[in-house]
Design a protein around this nucleic acid. Sequence first.
DNA 1: CAGCGCATGGCAATCGGTTGTCAAGAGCGT
DNA 2: ACGCTCTTGACAACCGATTGCCATGCGCTG
Lengths: 339, 339
Amino acid sequence: MATQPMATGRPATIHDIAALCGVAASTVSRALANPERVNIRTRERIQAAAVELNYTPNSQAKALSSGRTGAVGVLVPDITNPFYFDLIRGTQLQLKAAGYTQLLVDTEESDEVEASTLEQLRKSADGVIVAASRLNDEALAAAAARMPMVTVNRDVDGVPAVIIDTPSAMPQALDHLISLGHTSVAYVSGPAVSQSSARRWIALSEAAEERRVAVRSIGPFAPKTQSGAAAADAAVHSGVTACIVFNDLIAIGMLQRLRERGLRVPEDMSIVGCDDIFGADFCNPPLTTMSSPIEQAGRVAVSMLLAQLNPLAGGGNRSRSVMPTHLTVRGSTGPVPTN
Amino acid sequence: MATQPMATGRPATIHDIAALCGVAASTVSRALANPERVNIRTRERIQAAAVELNYTPNSQAKALSSGRTGAVGVLVPDITNPFYFDLIRGTQLQLKAAGYTQLLVDTEESDEVEASTLEQLRKSADGVIVAASRLNDEALAAAAARMPMVTVNRDVDGVPAVIIDTPSAMPQALDHLISLGHTSVAYVSGPAVSQSSARRWIALSEAAEERRVAVRSIGPFAPKTQSGAAAADAAVHSGVTACIVFNDLIAIGMLQRLRERGLRVPEDMSIVGCDDIFGADFCNPPLTTMSSPIEQAGRVAVSMLLAQLNPLAGGGNRSRSVMPTHLTVRGSTGPVPTN
DNA sequence: CAGCGCATGGCAATCGGTTGTCAAGAGCGT
DNA sequence: ACGCTCTTGACAACCGATTGCCATGCGCTG
């Protein structure tokens, strides 16, 4: 009645296996974890019993005694932002392949939620991947000191990072616009606390200076399509003929708003987005934007984190990985208006 | 050296609190879990100490001893399908509000992945929410017998379900098309194992019969934009003037393909989607589709699951909840071609 | 004042593993 | 044949909490 090896009973434990094989539970544990430390005959008996009882280890108990949870937290500011889809899918696939579980958390664009999530994850995950952190450098570095971490699109001293190098495509985007005759360009910026937005603006303004073209920054705007209306109005008011926009979400919102106002894209205004998210290719007009292998970024982030967790395994610990980016030209950019 | 109440040491445990207050660990546990079972003075001392030491309970240990994990699994077939964004956000918000952690898993449209995930979750979660299951009724019922479960868009005997009642909008959609003069309509079906797709087809064909209109089914097609090309070609070949499509992903793909082929929507072909996903309002032309409060569906699913987990709490256990759906008319439907 | 009951809090077992320690036994060389 | 080393597996402590059981001590009642 105490231990019942029925298939439909409660899940089997190592004790059930031990009883079935006539060995101690600790031997079962070793046979499964360090097979070479156990006699091959015993081991095979144990493994057979494990299969027979349909044994799967209890992850809670394993975590408690070993200190390793087998879980990795993935923090994104907004799970409904399509930019993160591919990232999440990349991390999920790579984590699963390595036998880890992904704990996905939406931090709701809030530094407080992010901080408390990190604190909680400290005990329930072996490491974290933090995408587009809203935390300041100090808080993020402190959190990274407490548990293995990899950031995405965020540089902090001592914290390994995967950087999606959108800034490197800024000169391409600007050249594209210049070749179409534009000389007055606005950067539509994202959240004030977004390092991505800051880096994109710096890259753009440097490129503009080299090329002796005027660019101004407007914003900040929240990274949502709804913000696109205000952004579009601000852009129109500023008198520019082209916008490079922090991300595609805002850019798509601008497309909609400009249409409402009776302005044509690209005839009256050219729009360049960033990220090439789901929807950028089928909006109206299709969006000229900057593309990156986002899913791969997720995979790389996981690899870097796992390298931290198992320092023994091969592959030197890269501390920074840069994903290439390129301009994808579609229909939202065109010649400067001639009026 | 053993216990050090420093802020930066390892996380505080109930033993640290017990030592600081001069009580037993079990008393601390009670003071925190069943405050009324402990003297108010003692309790307050303990609570103060807990705050001072920045105590947060170890969820693994709690799970191990109590049997409750405080986690709920959420299974979706494809995390990059925008349909699930709002659902996921709804479950996430509601679970967080109830103090639960969400374990999100992408089952990759595979019944095997889904089954093994469910088996694993059995030990690491208190319950699961399964959206658009690819499992057969038998397997799903078996899994539901082993752990609390709520399904989304899937009816299985004895398993509580949230149904997004898209079928109820099928007559509306058909009437809309008929009023525009269409008499030859195709249903573009989704995965063969999708109960949603089957239900939509049944509702549509019944409505068509009542109205004495011909509808045919083409497909099945995978629920991805890429499938839209084949679907569009099949629709054109079948000679219909309008399509009602299993979901917006395929519908958007069809829009793109029809444009490539030089066919105009809605002048040459009308398209109706399902789900009103992200992108349906800004594709070209904007998609006529069927809308539902998806985020609310997620919240309701969580409520139903929590009602199973804590039967004591108020709110009778509804076993089936139906979310209303309505037709949202946009630009992808128009009068039947007059040639 | 005796006796009863209840509020309180301590002890210890338990959850399911991991891991350090140690004894027993096998196999080897001399 | 003796003794050494190395392999093997058992024992038990431990991870951090929960929880049933029990002892203490208080206040109340008769």
